[in-house]
Design a protein around this nucleic acid. Structure first.
Length: 273
DNA sequence: CAGAGCACCTGTGGGC
DNA sequence: TGCCCACAGGTGCTCT
């Protein structure tokens, strides 16, 4: 579900209420939600710990404690939100929640139960597996062009690979490739410098606009209960098969690339070289 | 190495 | 209306 802009929106909301609070307990509902630690050990590891900050790295939500950190990945349908204890919301699909000493609860609700929570001492494990942040300084057009030129993989697969760039998912990959007029099956090394520059520009511009819109909502994603993102109204190709390309008017088609549903303009994005 | 297929889960929407 | 199938914003694994 959530890609970088949706996760960033969640992090921005949590940042307003969590830092400064002290965790007291973790309540496990769906056993598999804890990916690298046993429930009792997790509860005792976080009990009494101060939440220092809430950050994002790729699609991971990072909650820094006095000692160690909690990482949450929402996968397809996860939501993470804070509620005041007296407010009893619809508790369907809750896979686990954190209790804070001041009464605030941090709830993970996840229809498909793919979302995961893990506990770590530092971020080294993540830095080893993720590529650069697309909105960070390391992600430049030169870097992108150089990395593309030495890969025979399809562009769609490359952009979805979190080890290549961290944070893009199916929606923003299709939107970015449309922006740069690149067919998703094009091999990385066949992308010209000019198109790599356009892609770099598109990725950053699209992600920033999506963050400003609070992300994209289809079925599930809400940064908190009742709050959906409006970037859906600004999508150019994703989920718009049969509608006309905003640039040239040609009908947008849906195909399958890299085993994912993929939207593109057959005119603007031509055939792969 | 690159790509396909499947597993993990539950819900929804389209076709008949 | 109801049933069945395909598909869903992600990731990790196996197999070819």
């Amino acid at each position: 579900m959530p890609e970088l802009p949706e996760v960033e929106t969640v992090v921005q909301k949590l940042r307003l209420v969590l830092p400064g609070n002290t965790l007291s307990d973790f309540h496990l509902v769906w056993p598999k939600v804890l990916s690298n630690i046993e429930s009792n050990q997790f509860s005792s590891s976080i009990a009494g710990q101060l939440i220092r900050s809430v950050e994002r790295r790729g699609k991971y939500i990072i909650i820094r404690l006095t000692r160690g950190l909690i990482a949450v990945h929402l996968r397809m349908t996860g939501r993470l939100y804070a509620v005041r204890q007296p407010i009893d919301l619809d508790h369907r699909h809750v896979t686990g929640w954190f209790q804070c000493e001041n009464g605030i609860r941090l709830v993970l609700q996840d229809m498909r139960k793919f979302g995961r929570i893990s506990f770590h001492q530092d971020l080294q494990w993540l830095e080893e597996k993720l590529g650069p942040e697309p909105l960070g300084e390391q992600f430049t057009a030169q870097w992108l062009s150089a990395r593309l030129s030495c890969s025979g993989r399809q562009m769609k697969a490359l952009l979805l690979d979190q080890g290549f760039i961290a944070g893009l998912g199916n929606i923003y990959t299709d939107e970015s490739l449309w922006h740069a007029r690149i067919h998703p099956k094009t091999a990385g090394k066949d992308v010209t410098l000019q198109k790599a520059e356009r892609l770099h520009d598109g990725i950053r511009r699209i992600l920033r606009q999506a963050i400003d819109s609070g992300g994209t909502t289809f079925l599930n994603y809400e940064s908190e209960p009742g709050v959906s993102g409006s970037y859906r109204n600004r999508l150019q190709v994703f989920n718009r098969s049969g509608k006309s390309c905003p640039r040239c008017g040609t009908g947008i088609i849906k195909t399958r690339v890299s085993n994912r549903g993929t939207y593109l303009c057959p005119s603007c994005q031509g055939e792969p070289v």
